[in-house]
Nucleic acid binder design. Structure first.
Lengths: 235, 235
DNA sequence: CGTTAACAGTTAACGCTGTTCACTCAGGCT
DNA sequence: AGCCTGAGTGAACAGCGTTAACTGTTAACG
């Protein structure tokens, strides 16, 4: 006999699975409360035993997607033994890109939606936010590893300005004590990667490059080189 | 007495104005057909005299927003006399950023939504697509001006790979005959700008930098320097 | 000038959505 | 055994995009 909580957890998983299915097949607008209920052979109000609102369901799905992406990227780096840190950066970047291209609906939900500002008063810790931070940590960790394995050259503080240096210094603890200039450079490459992948997944790059694969690789090579890693050569 | 077409054009403008108002105040989901009608004191079916569907209304709004952004950026470069091309790049980049920060809902609608792939068969020329291309041309033009004013150093072809070079060469005509390496560099900076602004507007940067202004300026300085332009110093 | 046709706009309705309330009914706990 | 929690249902409400049939006004044409 299945324990009550177990049954509940099972249906909860089924709900999220159905929601995910609808998201993939029809985009975020297709994942409606009624549609999910229909998918499970339930009546709409039944779902309110599991989620207080439609928005909460979407939020839970976002958190799950972040976690899925995070573990997928981490596995990509650990399963295949990769002693080379350059290879790991390459795997991480390509993994993120491939995930986005393979799951455009999910990617759009995670990265193409404006997240409400934390309001600065109290960091509203929704599950989605926490999962997003865990996702960011993957990159931060790798970057710190690269730094402490072989420090890379970074721009002098004068170029960045006092204010930015101050802000970056405050973030130093989250980057395992890296100097602000190195954090700046890491951030630069992170935003470059993000912009690249967003533009490609959102189709914003089609107008100039029908296939952005080669472009992405070149960018990756450039970044790896700047970080002092040896990357596979072009062609 | 107002001509019939004039009255029609007027109401059409009012509809789009109301839609815009709703977009600003409540995000894209607030732009409903019925809500727009309510805003104008009309009944919902009346709007079908002006737009064949709700989606068409949104599409028209997207096209308008692209055009508004495009002309705003062009005016920014022409009204104030700016002989210096570095200043113009600075104005363009900051103009785009400021527009995005000032109009997050509109920005999200334009850049945070996956545009359906052109299907490669026949470039479906919706008004939105055309307007998006006009927007892209602003950047292409400025970059070409900078290039022909004072060519900037670009990476050697060996670093980019044959395939990418071939793709970029094909786009050379849209960049006024610039060499592929220079197009590559221009594209690099465009994607960097895009990623930077997207991350900031979508709130993806809050987690590491509460105020991305200084960071953005440093990035801009870096880009300007690489293009051989003199930019204002930090602080 | 009078007729006609096009057009803006309305009312009513359909099926859809998220959400709430009152209810049933089975399972687990004391 | 009896109660009670909780999963699930049915009916209903308001709002959504959309369609059809209808009204009145207004421009155009014989």
């Amino acid at each position: 006999m299945e324990s009550r909580d177990r049954r509940r957890a099972a249906t909860l998983a089924e709900i999220k699975a159905a929601a995910r299915r609808l998201l993939v097949s029809g985009g975020s607008s297709a994942v409606g409360l009624r549609a999910v209920a229909r998918e499970l052979g339930l009546t709409p109000p039944a779902l309110y035993r599991y989620f207080p609102s439609h928005e909460a369901l979407i939020g839970a799905m976002i958190a799950d997607l972040y976690d899925e992406l995070t573990t997928a990227l981490m596995q990509l780096q650990t399963t295949e033994e990769v002693p080379d840190l350059g290879e790991r950066l390459y795997l991480l970047a390509n993994g993120l890109r491939n995930w986005g291209l393979a799951h455009p609906a999910e990617f759009t939900l995670l990265f193409g939606t404006a997240v409400p500002t934390p309001d600065a008063d109290d960091h509203d810790e929704t599950p989605g936010h926490q999962a997003a931070m865990r996702f960011g940590d993957v990159f931060k960790e790798l970057v710190a590893q690269i730094w402490y394995w072989k420090p890379f050259p970074y721009p002098p503080d004068e170029l960045l300005g006092k204010e930015l240096i101050a802000q970056l210094t405050q973030e130093s603890e989250h980057f395992q004590g890296m100097p602000p200039g190195a954090i700046y450079l890491s951030l630069t490459y992170w935003t470059r990667l993000y912009g690249l992948i967003c533009m490609e997944v959102f189709g914003q790059l089609h107008w100039v490059l029908p296939d952005a694969g080669a472009y992405f690789e070149a960018q990756l090579r450039e970044i790896g080189e700047a970080l002092g890693l040896d990357c596979p050569p072009a062609d």
